[in-house]
Design a protein around this nucleic acid. Structure first.
Lengths: 230, 230
DNA sequence: TATGATTATATGTGTATACATAAAAGTCAA
DNA sequence: TTGACTTTTATGTATACACATATAATCATA
């Protein structure tokens, strides 16, 4: 009974050599063909294992030069940013939200710039998200009505703008940033904290093939932690 | 002249159908064999394209059931956390660092718990990182000497603990968290900000096959943003 | 009717093979 | 010596094929 060599087992073996220091950062490791012979499998299998390690940032591959163990590898982690309801429920809380503002308005210059749009009037939505009745996150959002016309008539009391957009309006790309900021008086009162208190801020803009869909700021009170595996 | 169908072009095509809404979330898409016929390529090629989309979280695949477009997809992004020197230089600053503390000490309970070690005495290193002479980040680090014995004699004035560890001590896994906190008097003075000012805090612990190597807190002053593409 | 065994099916994966492509190294003539 | 070719080589990728494996659906049996 022959147990075949899998790309997983090859990957694990290669990973072990990197972790043990047998192959140190910057070193050129043997070529695919050579490794295939060593492991007794096909080059395809070795290729897949190496490709995965390259995707993970542990090795760098270039034609002709070969494969090297990444020198000074950046720590990298994949962050999942779930919809707020799932996030709250995942922490064991009961989710609710309140729409504090829902109107067409002229966007300030900073928002218009982020959305890169000439539209004068945008949909402005402010939402407070609650966990077990307590403030969990406050969201200020602008939606480009050209990109999501149905937003004007959606019932955002029944389904949060966050969840509605994820389901109804696909996006092709976007960007996100994380920072810390001090609570303004208004945001502080909504989140039931003090003016000047540190807040965790996520800013996010999504686009569809160049056309901006929505941009928003999400304010989390102190104590919120975003955690991930390396 | 026949131009072959690549897994990239197949991926782009499938992505287009998802983005256009032709295949909406929750829908079962045609099987690999069927798509292979449609595209006029082998099942292997379709498989690779679908596998990539699954890695990216856009579709979910299960044997027998088939492939479905992910309902309520989480936004997800891969964050790169480079070594501090690269981060500073990447922003166009001149990097420098000062070791403020370098001693063996008894770790407080919270640190011992994070490292999950029974070692009584750990290496305690506090480092201030500078960009163009101005405070950029303050780092409080604990190192398990059992995991990195050479740390006791390393010249951390010449090379920051951050960079030294990345080069010298491989790790197999770890975790990282992001949050906001208020500056204590001590940290505020180091970062030249005010007590109570909002700080961006990254906490990180790395391990090697279960043995803790190092745990640290990195404090960034207000204004620091961690940005990424969705 | 409930339950356990069987079958069909979609994805998962390894192999051998062929050709494409990028880039380093070598060749050769002006 | 330089610059324009050619060769070599390592990775990149498509294909046809075979078998593995999970699981939904179906069928047989108590």
């Amino acid at each position: 009974m022959k147990t075949p060599i899998t790309h997983q087992s090859v990957r694990t073996n290669l990973l072990g050599r990197i972790h043990s220091g047998e192959w140190s950062p910057g070193i050129v490791i043997p070529g695919e063909a050579e490794l295939a012979i060593e492991f007794g499998c096909s080059r395809t299998t070795v290729n897949r294992a190496l490709r995965q390690l390259a995707d993970e940032g542990l090795v760098e591959r270039r034609r002709k030069r070969g494969t090297i163990v990444t020198p000074l590898p950046s720590a990298r982690t994949t962050l999942e940013i779930p919809i707020v309801r799932k996030e709250v429920e995942g922490r064991g809380g009961a989710y609710a939200h309140h729409i504090l503002l829902n109107e067409m308005a002229t966007a300030p210059a900073s928002v218009a710039a982020r959305l890169n749009t000439t539209a004068k009037s945008l949909l402005h939505l402010n939402t407070l998200h609650l966990s077990d009745g307590k403030p969990f996150m406050y969201e200020e959002r602008w939606i480009n009505p050209a990109a999501a016309p149905a937003a004007a008539t959606a019932d955002f009391e029944a389904i949060s703008p966050n969840e509605w957009l994820v389901q109804e309006v696909p996006y092709s790309d976007g960007d996100i940033s994380f920072s810390a900021c001090a609570a303004t008086a208004k945001v502080a009162s909504l989140l039931e904290t003090d003016e000047g208190a540190p807040l965790f801020l996520i800013e996010r803009t999504t686009r569809m093939y160049g056309d901006a869909i929505t941009t928003l700021k999400m304010y989390y009170p102190e104590g919120f932690r975003m955690t991930s595996k390396l």
